[in-house]
Write a protein that binds this DNA or RNA. Structure first.
Length: 350
DNA sequence: CTCTATTA
DNA sequence: TAATAGAGG
């Protein structure tokens, strides 16, 4: 699940005021977002939302309403979808698969024993994001007039690339990887309604969007992006999930601050035998990931209300009144954005 | 996660 | 008006 840089980032992260993102494009790690929808949008017993054919629709629900909300705040989402995962990620993907299988076994048991809370928890953990779901999400976003970008490989890398090229204002994801991939700004918790249930507890906490400025981060830590990557590699990334045993963010930071890069670390400080992965190759994955310029313009287009209704209401059994209401909000939000674009000379349309 | 009706 | 519970597909 990405790199845990939370300790290092803690000092430079700040609350995002939605006004500073108004009228701007934000790249969204689509898989990251959809996965959260699949895990969270469920009944009390853990059943996801489904249409009459039994096909899961939780992702469509989340994508639709979240997108309308962002646009109402004047934020223009650009959804970036994963392509083919790099070979280097196979270990991590295998780990996730095993965790999921284990959760499926536990789910089975919880069902047998009638433990509702557990059924819910393990249902969430067994969420699967299928290629159909990605396709359907892209289709819906297309009807809404929102640009989607197909990454050649890692979505997170592509979103960072868009950001570094100035095509977006920031990259939105829960993972910190974008910073390693070269994003200028990372936004976490990019939601409008700020409530979330604490795991295993009946407590709701306020979740506020936060922004991390990569230039501020490297300045504060007095390191380069390449050195941040080295720190992440020591701690563990998706390409070397275990990192180096006994090394956490604090120690990794001290080592890289002192010795500048992994190959220079004093053998007395870190036994090279402890490094059980090709760190040069991993470093290269973050420094020069496989990315491509988007094949479509990222500007907003006019939404197609009839297609939205056909897709969500007719084909996926969404409530017509709700959908129509949201379409109204969508259209107004887009009009407002267009007006603002005219005034500032930054028109999002042609 | 987000929406909406209900409640205070 | 704001907070909360329950449903959404």
């Amino acid at each position: 699940m990405g790199v845990d840089l939370s300790d290092l980032v803690a000092e430079v992260k700040r609350e995002l005021s939605l006004s500073e993102v108004k009228g701007k494009k934000v790249g969204i790690d689509a898989y990251n977002a959809i996965y959260q929808f699949l895990a969270a949008i469920r009944q009390f017993d853990g059943t996801p939302l489904m249409n009459r054919e039994g096909k899961v629709t939780s992702h469509l629900n989340g994508v639709f309403y979240r997108t309308v909300n962002l646009l109402e705040e004047g934020i223009i989402p650009i959804y970036v979808f994963d392509g083919k995962p790099p070979e280097m990620k196979s270990q991590e993907l295998e780990n996730r698969r095993k965790i999921k299988e284990e959760a499926e076994r536990k789910l089975e048991r919880a069902r047998e024993e009638g433990k509702i809370e557990e059924v819910r928890k393990f249902s969430q953990m067994t969420s699967r994001l299928t290629s159909d779901m990605a396709k359907e999400s892209k289709e819906l976003l297309g009807f809404m007039g929102i640009a989607t970008v197909q990454a050649p490989s890692e979505g997170e890398a592509e979103a960072a690339y868009l950001n570094s090229k100035g095509l977006t204002f920031a990259s939105a994801s829960q993972d910190y990887d974008s910073l390693l991939f070269g994003a200028i700004r990372l936004i976490r918790n990019l939601t409008i309604s700020g409530k979330r249930k604490l795991p295993n507890k009946d407590i709701y906490i306020e979740i506020k969007p936060e922004i991390i400025d990569s230039s501020l981060l490297v300045k504060k830590l007095e390191i380069t992006r390449e050195q941040l990557i080295d720190i992440a590699i020591l701690v563990g990334t998706d390409y070397n999930p275990d990192g180096v045993k006994g090394i956490g963010p604090k120690k990794a930071y001290r080592l890289i601050k002192t010795f500048k890069r992994i190959e220079n670390i004093d053998k007395k400080e870190l036994d090279p035998e402890m490094i059980k992965f090709d760190y040069k190759k991993i470093r290269e994955m973050f420094l020069n990931p496989e990315v491509s310029l988007p094949s479509v313009p990222l500007d907003l287009r006019d939404p197609d209300p009839e297609k939205i209704i056909q897709f969500l209401v007719k084909e996926n059994d969404f409530n017509e009144e709700r959908v129509k209401g949201a379409i109204q909000r969508l259209q107004k939000a887009m009009r407002d954005l267009r007006d603002m674009g005219r005034q500032t000379g930054l028109d999002q349309w042609f």
